[in-house]
Simulated assay, not measured.
Amino acid sequence: MRVSKRIKKSFERQGINPTPQLYLLCLRCCRSQIEGIEMFKTNTLTAAVAAAVLAATGAFAGAPAVTGQFDNVTYLMNAEKMTLYTFDKDEKDKSNCYGDCATKWPPLTADDSVELSKGYSLIERTDGTKQVAYKGQPLYLWFKDQKPGDMTGDGVKDVWHVAKP
């Protein structure tokens, strides 16, 4: 009990408000409360510096589309985890969604410098922008999806479908 109180006071002096799990971690993994605090501060600082460096160099840029899973169904989503869709009226490597269609179904776009995973490609739209496609199928978002995991566009007019790998 004495060590626990000393750890708590050490955290308080450093201005750190730890969770109970962090207390236990310090008790179990560290030789003393001071080592625990110093290790926590050092690792937190190291992680923050590394994140800043990676963000500045574009290492977090990532792919414009990734796979996700919901109710044991794997589907495609953008980097913000919003559901992606395909349009039955598109052709291989060609979008047929423009004007009002593209307003409601914004194309997933990227620039030429993006690194794409296997199966993904960039197709050129009539306005010159590059749209991400998966296995030749152009990918879109749906304007009514409000949060990650929403799939309200699936089945719209029987021509829009959640994109799946």
Rank of each mutant, 00 (worst) to 15 (best):
R2T: 10
V3G: 05
S4H: 10
S4C: 11
K5D: 13
R6Q: 14
I7F: 05
I7K: 02
K9R: 15
S10Q: 14
S10F: 02
S10T: 13
S10R: 06
S10K: 10
F11V: 07
F11Q: 04
R13Y: 08
R13P: 04
Q14P: 02
G15C: 09
I16F: 08
N17A: 13
P18W: 01
Q21L: 15
L22V: 15
L22K: 15
Y23T: 05
L24R: 09
L24S: 06
L27N: 09
L27S: 11
R31T: 09
R31V: 04
R31F: 08
S32Y: 07
Q33F: 08
Q33L: 03
I34K: 11
E35W: 10
G36I: 07
G36Y: 01
G36C: 13
I37Q: 07
E38N: 07
K41L: 15
N43W: 03
T46Q: 15
A47Q: 11
A48Q: 13
V53S: 02
A55L: 10
A56Q: 15
F60M: 10
F60A: 04
A61G: 00
G62M: 04
A63M: 05
P64Y: 06
V66M: 12
V66F: 02
G68D: 03
Q69H: 03
F70P: 01
D71E: 13
V73A: 13
Y75P: 00
Y75D: 03
L76V: 08
L76Y: 03
M77V: 06
M77A: 10
E80I: 01
K81H: 12
T83K: 02
Y85L: 05
T86Y: 07
K89H: 10
D90S: 05
E91C: 04
E91P: 02
K92M: 13
D93H: 05
K94L: 12
K94N: 00
C97M: 04
Y98S: 03
Y98I: 06
Y98M: 04
D100I: 11
C101H: 04
C101S: 07
C101A: 06
A102M: 11
T103K: 15
K104A: 12
K104E: 09
W105T: 02
P107R: 01
P107S: 11
L108E: 01
L108N: 00
A110K: 01
D111E: 14
D112T: 12
V114M: 14
V114K: 09
E115L: 15
L116W: 09
G119F: 08
Y120G: 06
Y120C: 14
L122Y: 10
L122W: 03
R125G: 02
T126Y: 05
T126S: 12
T126V: 09
D127F: 12
T129E: 05
K130L: 15
Q131N: 07
V132T: 08
V132K: 00
A133Y: 00
Y134A: 01
G136Q: 13
G136S: 03
Q137V: 03
L139R: 01
L139T: 07
L139W: 00
Y140E: 03
Y140S: 01
L141N: 11
W142K: 01
W142G: 00
W142Y: 15
K144Y: 10
D145T: 11
Q146G: 13
G149W: 00
D150P: 04
T152S: 12
G153S: 06
G153R: 03
G155R: 08
G155I: 11
K157M: 15
K157L: 14
D158T: 12
V159H: 12
V159T: 12
W160S: 04
H161M: 10
K164T: 08
